[in-house]
Design a protein around this nucleic acid. Structure first.
Length: 282
DNA sequence: TCATCACCTGGAGA
DNA sequence: ATCTCCAGGTGAT
């Protein structure tokens, strides 16, 4: 009972949801908004620099219910069996939003580098249990950053996206508390008004930070998975690039098939396929 | 509605 | 050494 639902920290951190984490000794040290977190597998502990942790590891989820729901599908069932300790993470929304805007057309390692640069240049220095780190920048800081400083963080063409996205938060156009309360479709449409956010990035933000478990990010890996295992289940999956309208039609089919916890399914499938292809994480 | 193409940057492979 | 190609996509035409 305890064993079955035990969280595997390393697996969870190395599942493409978060970027600002490092393994130091036996523990994982990471940045979540203005918090520094330290995770320990054994003995299990989650420690926060500001006790403002908002259930980062989603201990409030009913895993038994979720897992029994999503494992009705055989492929998901085998993916869960392979990484039973994998969990969805509830991230700081602003950090998640900027992180996935930075993710477009890049690699895990480069995304991590960009985000570390942003923290070093714009974050607040903190020390927690002997670890000196800088927190993630606040929205108004990035909104007022110069383009040169953003370019210096190696954001490339994303620099403009990040600045405008931060301005949208600063002005109240993007309100994460409101987005958490509203429905999935409304949240996605709202996020997509921001330059640099398309369907995929919006789904990542919704799933990883806004409690929208029906979000199912479809990237090139997910597309490969759907083609490989689910071609006959969905009409709208092809090897061609997923256009905006195709994405939306496909998502409807996906939620109908995978159910209300589709996002959990995606996470297990994604992890399985990346590992199968021996892709590196953090 | 869809097809092309460009895009910062850094790492891998030719 | 130098070049080409590509990576958790998105925007403009």
């Amino acid at each position: 009972m305890q064993k079955i639902h035990a969280i595997d920290i390393e697996t969870t951190i190395n599942s493409g949801q978060v970027f600002l984490w490092n393994k130091i000794g036996v523990q994982w040290v990471g940045i979540d908004g203005q918090d520094l977190l330290i995770l320990n597998q054994s003995p299990f502990s989650v420690r926060s620099s500001s006790n403002g942790i908002d259930n980062f590891l989603r201990a409030d989820d009913n895993l038994e219910k979720i897992l029994s729901n999503i494992t009705k599908d055989k492929i998901v069932k085998s993916a869960v069996k392979q990484s039973p300790g994998l969990r969805l993470i509830r991230q700081d929304p602003f950090q998640c939003y900027i992180s996935f805007i930075c993710s477009s057309n890049s690699t895990i390692q480069n995304i991590k580098s960009m985000l570390e640069n942003l923290c070093k240049k714009f974050g607040t220095k903190k020390e927690f249990e002997g670890h000196k780190l800088a927190t993630f920048p606040k929205a108004d800081t990035l909104a007022n950053a110069t383009m040169k400083d953003l370019i210096d963080c190696k954001l490339g063409f994303r620099a403009r996206y990040v600045k405008e996205a931060a301005q949208a938060v600063n002005s109240g156009k993007i309100d994460f508390e409101w987005l958490k309360k509203t429905d999935y479709r409304t949240a996605i449409e709202s996020l997509k008004e921001i330059l640099g956010i398309g369907n995929k990035v919006a789904d990542c933000i919704a799933l990883f930070s806004l409690d929208k478990m029906e979000a199912f990010p479809i990237d090139t890996w997910t597309q490969k998975i759907l083609l490989k295992y689910y071609k006959k289940f969905f009409d709208n999956i092809t090897e061609k690039p997923v256009t905006e309208k195709k994405y939306e039609k496909l998502h409807e089919e996906i939620v109908e098939y995978f159910g209300p916890y589709a996002g959990y399914s995606q996470q297990f499938l994604f992890k399985m396929e990346r590992d199968l292809n021996k892709k590196n994480w953090l």
